[in-house]
């Protein structure tokens, strides 16, 4: 599966400001929270505009790729409850602790979606999207008694992932809060590092 799988794509090629934004707004209203919209545009102004628009409207700007003068912008529609994470898993650490674990033996598990991961993740982090985590547990067994740091964007999905891991006998699991939304450390942009 490509990291760039989207739920909806709109073609704004040849359109100039403000039309790509107007179409983007309309399209985001038509998808469900958590889904990803791709905006294909040729207007160079759309690079700054789409990002600003997403920030302003509270949606998650994932990133932009360019291919021969054609821009592909990716936006994930916000999920209201993700804005205020309600975390209940007891073992919580902050981003600084995660930063101190870079290059150590600890497993850093990124439970966001593949595209979020592709546009920037903590170096060495392994991808295990929350929705697929249970299917991936078998491959993670060797980490059951090792340190596992679980990270997402705001601490919400990682909270759920920590509970799943704990329920399956993982004894040394930590939820990293807030996670990638506030991450100041180094990031890698790369295709998926499969487990």
């Amino acid at each position: 599966m490509s990291a760039y799988t989207v739920d909806k794509s709109i073609d704004c090629k040849g359109l100039s400001c403000p039309m790509p934004i107007v179409r983007t707004k309309k399209a985001i209203d038509e998808i469900a929270p958590g889904q990803v919209l791709e905006v294909v545009a040729t207007d160079p102004g759309s690079v700054a505009d789409v990002k600003s628009w997403a920030t302003r409207t509270g949606h998650q700007f994932l990133g932009t790729t360019e291919d021969g003068g054609v821009f592909h912008h990716y936006i994930r529609k916000s999920i209201p409850e993700e804005q205020k994470p309600e975390t209940t898993f007891a073992n919580v650490v902050d981003n600084d602790v995660l930063a101190s674990k870079l290059g150590s033996d600890a497993l850093i598990l990124d439970v966001r979606e593949p595209m979020e991961y592709a546009f920037g993740h903590v170096p060495g982090a392994k991808l295990a999207p929350l929705g697929q985590l249970e299917r991936m547990l078998e491959g993670l067994k060797t980490y059951a008694d090792k340190e596992v740091y679980v990270v997402c964007r705001t601490g919400n999905r990682s909270d759920m992932a920590c509970k799943i891991l704990a329920d399956h006998g993982f004894t040394n699991v930590y939820n990293v809060i807030p996670g990638m939304s506030e991450w100041q450390g180094p990031v890698e942009q790369s295709e998926v590092e499969q487990l």
Binding site: P18, I21, K25, T57
Partner: peptide, 11 residues
């Protein structure tokens, strides 16, 4: 009209 449209697009 451009500013108006950009305005409504940003809610």
């Amino acid at each position: 009209l451009n500013i108006a449209m950009a305005g409504v697009a940003t809610e």
